[in-house]
Design a protein around this nucleic acid. Structure first.
Length: 811
RNA sequence: GGGGAGAUGCCGGAGCGGUCAAACGGGCUGGGUUUAGGACCCAGUAGCAUCUUGCUUACGGGGGUUCGAAUCCUCCUCUCCCCACCA
């Protein structure tokens, strides 16, 4: 047994793959295409952790498997390089975002190469590259053209000291991250939005076609888009009509107040002079718009002084401004029915507002009753079930022309404006005369200026020369838009750019994109379930509508990997000191062992804790394989090994397909246990086993493959043939099984008996030869199906019955 | 506040109606082997028993469906994750 130099083997094969362009692909292949993608990383300077290692190996294993199966596999990688951390680094220690980003990207590339990930590096891209974000701008202009990009006022978190908009993560306990004593304020700015809501229904309905997406992800998206059928009811306030959306028109007679969002643009028009002070005081109290805090906040409000008239009974109810009503959902005002809504109930209790029960059911003295029931206190609708009442009251109000049925979505338009530097500049010029004018396409990319100052405000505001420009329409004085785009814009279509990443004439070649897309298997974290994965779907649909792509859904299959936690079960973090550095592990055990171990512990969609002991187990297995291959004699394999191999191949294939890598490792171990007991084996078996292992352990399998005398790479090998797994049905005669059982009981029994009762499963009953049993024992034999309610079974023996294993009672 | 996932033996975790005292690792115990490296091999690892297939107790807790539940339903308790200016 000799020491294996893993590092040398890894370097050798990584070099050869690169030299021979093993993983570079094009559209000319005769093989069937397969597009495998892992969500590209944000290259953060914090470096790489086991989570990255897990995620990218996850895709790589599948990708290598597909290649072995004979597909033309596209497996690219790039960097989602624009974003806040690079800018924070600039603010904190003066590093230029571009420099920071480049360094981080180099770090990541190093890791990917170290791991032997099979990327086609010729297609790599970085979103911070103007040749990439040029096309972000191009798409933006297309959306503008189609009326899908527009400006409106919207609230942001604002720190008066930084004079900057704050991200949610920069708000800490309502204070600025850099100025602990400065409370975050709410500020309104004119910002750019993309009209994702135009696609709300298609995004919602399309989910049911995504058969190979995790159910939970689809559920989350459905809840996010939040399609709900309801009724819009007109309430009159100060002689003006206010439409109110509700899913509970049946409770209209229980409305005792209204709540308008504190952020509502028309709030001012509701506040009476007497209440002005109170309302102002309240608004000042609402510090942050961060929705994280939004939910945690206690329900609070203030009376505006106005009253609304309930169209159902003409009752006057007070209008409050509240912090728990969303300005953008529905009409920004809700009708409150405290008897039957939890939030309304809390609010009514707090401000001592009347509570009227209109659906009979539990008492409402302590909490709201949200269940079903018959209507009460509802005039002519009394005694109707509330579900029926929804319809009836709606049509009654419709006739009175004060209501209509509507479909409402929770999804809001996508605010893409960021008052930051390290993002894609929005290609707009603000002209004093012409307003917001798009930058002409020929002027793209609109590059980020380099002469900026970081620290206070939006750095782009300090690029005075860059800002100053002339209007493309009237040539008059104009200023550039200084907002940049949300980085989710960049990641919404990057998978298309990989198909033709160096194209400088077009966003991509349509033919190439149509060949590779849609992505067949997409790997990434579940935290993206409701953002990136919805935005990408939206972008795809838009690009389809302008004739660039020919699919409806960008990702056919989707897989979410779990988290790798520290050995203590907590998230790996520096402060907890439980971080495991991939490089250290590789130095100790080699990449292949790590790759194997990452999928030996748990199913990859689950979180699991790192364990040093565990990796030793994988290391042992790798070493066993190497040792066995150095000793085995090549001749022929026994028949049972050949059979087991065929079976293993089939099962491995099946489990790879389901990303059940853990089961694959079990199958590989089991098969290895069996065939490595032999001193000699056939070349076919020896090579075949290596192929099965090569997705996990590409380097050492290449090495052993070469030692077996192969000239080409194992990476280019052909997947071995499997056989249909024999169904091992234990159909060995139930009658003789019963006889056997009775005999064994006879042996143990001292006393004599006259009657034999046999209990079998219902479906087995017909296949039992009762007379044969009778003849064998010359006793009275009765056979019952286990579910026979009239069976004689004083000792309750029937409960032990199993398939192929009857239970017996004698007396 | 809303949404999602989960709870299995000493540990990590499979299992998703019968073949389950429960795969596969790790740990531990006993034996062998080697004594040169975190080495290797075999057996055992809920309790009891007449220790080749027997009984009892077991898959967070309670209740239910079923001939039969770790697996299905329901309630409870606890844990983790996500929420649109972090990507």
């Amino acid at each position: 047994m000799q020491q294996t130099n893993f590092a040398a083997i890894e370097k050798k094969w990584q070099g050869r793959w690169e030299k021979e362009k093993t993983f570079e692909v094009d559209e000319k292949s005769k093989k069937q295409k397969h597009y495998i993608l892992e969500m590209f990383p944000y290259p953060s300077g914090l470096g790489l952790h086991m989570g990255h290692a897990l995620m990218y190996t996850l895709g790589d294993i599948y990708s290598r498997f597909k290649k072995l199966q004979g597909f033309n596999v596209l497996h690219p990688m790039g960097y989602d390089a624009l974003g806040l951390p690079a800018e924070n680094a600039a603010i904190k220690d003066g590093t230029l975002p571009s420099k920071y980003t480049k360094k981080s990207i180099d770090n990541f590339t190093k890791l990917f190469k170290k791991f032997g990930i099979s990327y086609d590096w010729t297609r790599t891209l970085s979103t911070s590259d103007p040749s990439y974000y040029k096309w972000d701008q191009w798409i933006f202009l297309k959306m503008l053209e189609k009326g899908l990009a527009y400006q409106k006022e919207s609230s942001v978190n604002w720190c008066s000291k930084c004079e900057t908009v704050l991200a949610n993560e920069q708000v800490q306990n309502g204070m600025c991250w850099r100025h602990e004593e400065t409370p975050v304020q709410v500020k309104k700015l004119k910002q750019w939005f993309l009209k994702i809501t135009d696609y709300a229904d298609e995004l919602y309905e399309g989910l049911s076609d995504l058969k190979d997406w995790p159910e939970r992800t689809k559920t989350m998206q459905r809840n996010w888009i939040g399609k709900s059928h309801g009724t819009q009811i007109m309430f009159e306030i100060n002689k003006k009509e206010w439409p109110i959306f509700t899913t509970r028109p049946d409770t209209i007679f229980g409305v005792t107040f209204m709540v308008v969002s504190a952020q509502h643009t028309r709030l001012d028009s509701l506040v009476t002079p007497e209440q002005e002070m109170e309302v102002d005081k309240f608004l000042k109290k609402l510090k942050s718009v961060s929705e994280k805090d939004f939910g945690a906040m206690e329900k609070e409000g203030v009376f505006t002084g106005s009253y609304a008239i309930n169209p159902a009974n003409n009752e006057k109810v007070p209008v409050y401004a509240g912090n728990f009503v969303l300005a953008d959902y529905g009409s920004g005002m809700v009708m409150a029915v405290p008897a039957h809504d939890k939030r309304d109930f809390e609010f009514a209790k707090k401000y001592k507002i009347k509570i009227t029960q209109v659906v009979s059911g539990d008492s409402i003295t302590k909490k709201a009753y949200v269940g079903e029931g018959k209507l009460i206190n509802s005039e002519k609708f009394n005694d109707i079930s509330n579900t029926q009442a929804k319809e009836k009251i709606t049509s009654w109000l419709e006739k009175k022309k004060v209501a209509k049925k509507v479909i409402n979505f929770k999804l809001r338009d996508w605010g893409i404006s960021r008052q930051r530097y390290w993002g894609t500049p929005i290609p707009i010029i603000h002209c004093e005369k012409c307003g917001a004018v798009p930058v002409p396409q020929k002027d793209l990319p609109l590059k980020l200026p380099e002469k900026v100052k970081f620290g206070k405000g939006n750095p782009l505001e300090t690029a005075t020369e860059w800002i100053k420009t002339s209007c493309p329409r009237c040539k008059g004085n104009a200023k550039r838009e200084t907002d940049t785009m949300d980085t989710f814009v960049n990641s919404s279509w990057y998978f298309l750019r990989y198909c033709d990443s160096s194209n400088d004439k077009a966003i991509f070649d349509k033919k190439k994109a149509n060949y590779w897309t849609p992505v067949d298997y997409y790997f990434g974290g579940s935290e993206h379930a409701c953002m990136h994965l919805i935005y990408s779907r939206f972008y795809s649909k838009f690009l389809r509508d302008i004739g660039l792509v020919n699919f409806d859904e960008p990702f056919t299959k989707l897989f979410h990997q779990g988290f790798v936690q520290g050995a203590d079960g907590n998230k790996m973090s520096k402060s907890l000191g439980n971080v495991v550095d991939p490089y250290e592990i590789i130095d100790k055990f080699g990449v292949d062992t790590l790759r194997l171990f990452l999928f030996s512990v748990a199913s990859p969609d689950k979180d699991y804790s790192w364990s040093e002991n565990g990796i030793i187990g994988s290391f042992k297995f790798v070493k066993k394989i190497i040792n066995y291959y150095s000793e085995v004699k090549i001749s022929s394999s026994k028949k049972d090994i050949q059979e087991k191999f065929a079976q293993t191949v089939t099962l491995v294939e099946k489990n790879f397909e389901k990303i059940e890598y853990r089961k694959v490792t079990i199958l590989l171990r089991e098969f290895f246990e069996q065939f490595s007991k032999e001193k000699e084996n056939s070349k076919e078996i020896l090579e075949g086993f290596l192929i099965l292992c090569s997705s996990f352990c590409p380097h050492i399998t290449e090495e052993l493959w070469e030692k077996l005398g192969n000239k080409d790479f194992i990476s280019n090998a052909e997947w071995p043939k499997g056989k249909i797994v024999k169904q091992e049905i234990s159909q060995n005669n139930p009658t003789s099984k019963i006889i056997e059982e009775i005999k064994s009981i006879q042996n143990k029994l001292n006393s004599s008996y006259e009657k034999i009762y046999v209990y079998v499963l219902p479906f087995e009953l017909s296949s039992i030869n009762q007379s044969k049993i009778k003849n064998t024992f010359k006793k009275d034999v009765t056979i019952f199906a286990v579910n026979d309610s009239k069976k004689y079974d004083p000792k309750n023996k029937a409960k032990n019955t199993r398939p192929g294993k009857p239970s017996i009672y004698v007396e």
